[in-house]
Write a protein that binds this DNA or RNA. Structure first.
Lengths: 231, 231
DNA sequence: CCGACGAATTGAGCAACCCTCATATTGTAT
DNA sequence: ATACAATATGAGGGTTGCTCAATTCGTCGG
């Protein structure tokens, strides 16, 4: 009759999701400890409390399982990034800085998991290259487009290049920070952010002098002329 | 008697070096075709014309062999980078742009091999993480220091952050370029370089207003003088 | 409550492959 | 010519990702 008795009040769907979570959790631990190569499928199965064969009912192969671990994490990060931007002042520059700080901070605190993510980039997958990062990147696009709409950022600026600049620089800066001792880390991060903001704003706000200087000069000159005309 | 007969006029040293080269050449081909995982030691041995066990007399293990392939390549690249800078005009800005263009170009043309190099970053090596890139990075340091010495670049600028910015941005920009169709690639590269130069110069040349303001002041002074002359 | 059928799970076994090491070959000095 | 060291070989050991025939579990109709 459609509805039937379930063990411990769980639906079939719930039980399957629970198992999936158990597997992903076990896999995350194992991958964090040994990387893609170091982790053993047998060990993951044991930790998850399932047989080795069961893993292959849920995920096609080892790297597919790691993809699931990484994708879940990027999902969390995307939500957090949106939140970080929304909590900043309602000003494109402030939002951009908030996102920059959020991302660099992430690279330092979440490095082990992000390293897994990056390493996956270089694994020749059997399946089409997935892009769990796409949604995350959209957070930046939103900030930049909003700045352009408000007239604070130049519409000339190519968002694609700025994406590369922000994420590229920060990935490298994060790695540099990790090489430093704990106490120098914050200083280096702050410095990287300041520098990167200067750089990005130079692109986003375009040349400032030409737009302001002529204006100032023109008005000054005309004032002088008016004075000259008086005499 | 110290000097002894050699087959085909080769010294022992020469024969060993020749074998090493044969192995590295075979390994490069194999790794380019299948990556670290896809390449088979048995196949590399066959291509190099040696037995599988011989590989392990020259290199500790598979990733150590790949390291050798990649290190050799970075060595070539470093020489070429120095050359690119030296052939540019004797001007720090021009040299920086030459290096930027050289590096981005590299990322597009040499991508398969550079991808191997990057993937190696994420292989938990049994040995201390090697840094074949160190010498390459020094090329940038040289350009920036020279600019500072000549007073063209601000000494305030932190070279470490600029390193992250240049190489980080370019790695990402190179990847973006590879996703584009052949005909749009050059345009995108040129655009990335222009943008990146704007960004870096904003950092390297510091705030520009102070250098222009005096001009405003000069003209103001002259205006006042004209007014004074009237009375 | 029973029996039966499909879905889900298991884990022993297979195949692939890196690396070792006992043996063989080559080179050199006396 | 002989002994000895250096170098090379490749069959076999050991590990591990993945498959699939056998088994258990969950859900129905009767």
């Amino acid at each position: 009759m459609g509805q039937s008795l379930q063990k411990a009040n769980q639906t079939k769907r719930e039980r399957i999701t629970e198992r999936e979570d158990a597997i992903v959790d076990a896999a995350r631990e194992a991958f964090l400890e040994g990387g893609l190569r170091g982790a053993r499928m047998a060990e993951i199965a044991e930790r998850a409390g399932v047989a080795e064969g069961t893993l292959y009912l849920y995920y096609k192969n080892k790297s597919d399982l790691m993809r699931a671990v990484v994708a879940q994490h990027w999902d969390d990060l995307t939500r957090a990034a949106h939140k970080a931007v929304d909590e900043a002042d309602d000003d494109p520059v402030a939002q951009l800085e908030a996102l920059t700080r959020f991302h660099l901070n992430l690279l330092v605190t979440d490095w082990p998991l992000l390293e897994l993510s990056f390493s996956l980039t270089y694994i020749e997958g059997d399946d089409p290259p997935s892009s769990y990062k796409r949604d995350y990147v959209i957070v930046l696009d939103r900030v930049l487009r909003r700045g352009q709409d408000k007239g604070v950022f130049s519409v000339q600026a190519d968002i694609r290049v700025l994406r590369d600049m922000l994420f590229g620089t920060l990935e490298y800066a994060g790695r540099s920070a990790l090489l430093l001792a704990e106490d120098k880390r914050r200083e280096h991060c702050d410095h990287s952010i300041t520098t990167l903001m200067t750089a990005m704003l130079a692109v986003l706000q375009g040349p400032q002098e030409p737009t302001q200087t002529p204006d100032v000069m023109d008005r000054l000159e005309s004032a002088v002329e008016r004075l000259e005309a008086l005499s």
